[in-house]
Design a binder for these strands. Structure first.
Lengths: 183, 183
DNA sequence: AACTAAACGCAACTCAAATTGCGTTAGTAT
DNA sequence: ATACTAACGCAATTTGAGTTGCGTTTAGTT
C-alpha cells in the first residue's frame, strides 16, 4: 500500500482549471476592481464553466482570498545582509515592488474590506518577518518589531490603498531612513 | 413670494426614512461588513420599502458613502493649543477615538475597497488638516505634513483596518512621541 | 380649508447570479 | 489494461437584486 491517499487529484485538468481561473481573476481584479468582478465573468474569461467555480470555492470572497494567497510567497527568503538597516531596506523594497503591481494592490484593497475580525495572512506574515529580522540582532536592536510595523509597513500599506501614485522607488529607503533617525 | 423654494421637503416622513435608513446601514455594516450588505436588507431593517432607497440613492455605493459623510465632520475645529506636538496629539486622539467605534471602522474598511483610483475624502481631509497644523509653525516645524501622514495617520489607519484590537488610549500619544523623537 | 407636488408604498416584472441533477471526462489505483 | 471516482460540462431551475408603473400619503403653499 502506498502512502495515505489524498482527497484531491493534483495534476491534469483540475490544475489547468485552477491555473486559468487564477489568471482570469488577477486580470479582472486589475481591470475592474474587486467590487465589479463576478464568478460568471471569471468563468467566461477562464474558458471554464461557472459551475466548476461555484463547486470548488462556493463564493467569490473565498475564491479571491484563496487565489491571493498564492502571491508574495510566505516561504521566500528573508533578506540577510548582516545589517538590520540594510535588511529592512531590502525587505521594504520587496514589499513596495510587490504592491506597485496593480493586481496585487487591488487584491490588498479587497482584502481590507473583509479584514478586522481575524488577523489577515498579510499582516501576520509581515509581522513575523519583521520579528525575525529584528531578533537576529537581539536586545541591541535600535528598533522594535512594533515600530517596524507602525513606521515601515503601515505607511507603505496606507499608500498602496489610498495613495498608490505616491509609491516610488525611494519610498522604502526614505521610510527606513526616518525609522532609524536619531537612533 | 417667499424665499426660493427648495426642491427637497425636509421635515416629516422623508426625514424619518432618512434617519431610520441611516441607522440601519450603520448597524448592518457593523454586523456583516460593507460587502455583505444589500439594499433590500437595509430597507427591511429600516422598516422602509426598498423602492424608496433605490429612488433616493440609486445604488448601494452612493448610499453608504453619503451616509458615511455625516460622520467625522470636516468642518469641526482643529486643535490649537500653541504647541505643534500638543495639537497633533489631540488631533490623533480624536481620530483614534473616532475609529474605535466599530461602525466607523467598518465604513473605513469598506471605503478602502473602492479607493485607489481617486483620492478619498478621508485621506484628503486628513492631509489638509495635517498641513494646517504644521504650517502654523512655519519653516521651524520639526516635522513635515508628509511625515505626519506616514508616521501618525498611516499607523492608525493600518491598525484600524487590520489590527483594530491594538488601538488603545495610548496609541496616539506614543505615535506622536515617536514622531518627535530625536528632533 | 383646499391645492400641489414630492416622496413613499405596493405589486408586477426583468434579468443575472447562484443552485442542482445528471451524464461525461480524465487522473489514479490495482 | 481495467475499474474507480473526483472533477468537470451542460442544461434546467431557483433565487434575489434591481426596475417600473401607478395609486396613496403628506409636508408645504395659498
Amino acid at each position: 500500500m502506498s502512502t495515505n491517499t489524498v482527497q484531491k487529484r493534483p495534476g491534469g485538468r483540475s490544475a489547468a482549471v485552477l491555473n486559468s481561473v487564477k489568471i482570469a481573476v488577477e486580470e479582472l481584479v486589475q481591470e475592474k476592481g474587486r467590487e465589479r468582478v463576478t464568478i460568471p465573468m471569471v468563468a467566461e474569461r477562464a474558458g471554464v464553466n461557472p459551475t466548476s467555480v461555484y463547486r470548488r470555492w462556493g463564493d467569490l470572497q473565498t475564491m479571491i482570498n484563496d487565489i491571493a494567497t498564492y502571491r508574495l510567497d510566505p516561504t521566500r527568503p528573508i533578506p540577510e545582509t548582516g545589517s538590520l538597516k540594510a535588511d529592512l531596506t531590502a525587505w521594504a523594497r520587496e514589499i513596495v515592488a510587490h504592491y506597485r503591481n496593480p493586481t496585487n494592490a487591488a487584491l490588498l484593497r479587497g482584502g481590507a474590506a473583509s479584514a478586522g475580525e481575524t488577523e489577515s495572512d498579510c499582516t501576520r506574515n509581515r509581522r513575523a518577518e519583521a520579528g525575525m529580522m529584528v531578533e537576529r540582532y537581539g536586545a541591541t536592536s535600535p528598533v522594535t518589531p512594533d515600530e517596524v510595523l507602525d513606521h515601515l509597513v503601515a505607511p507603505i500599506i496606507y499608500r498602496v490603498i489610498f495613495l498608490p501614485w505616491t509609491l516610488d522607488d525611494g519610498t522604502a529607503d526614505s521610510l527606513v531612513e526616518r525609522l532609524f533617525a536619531g537612533r
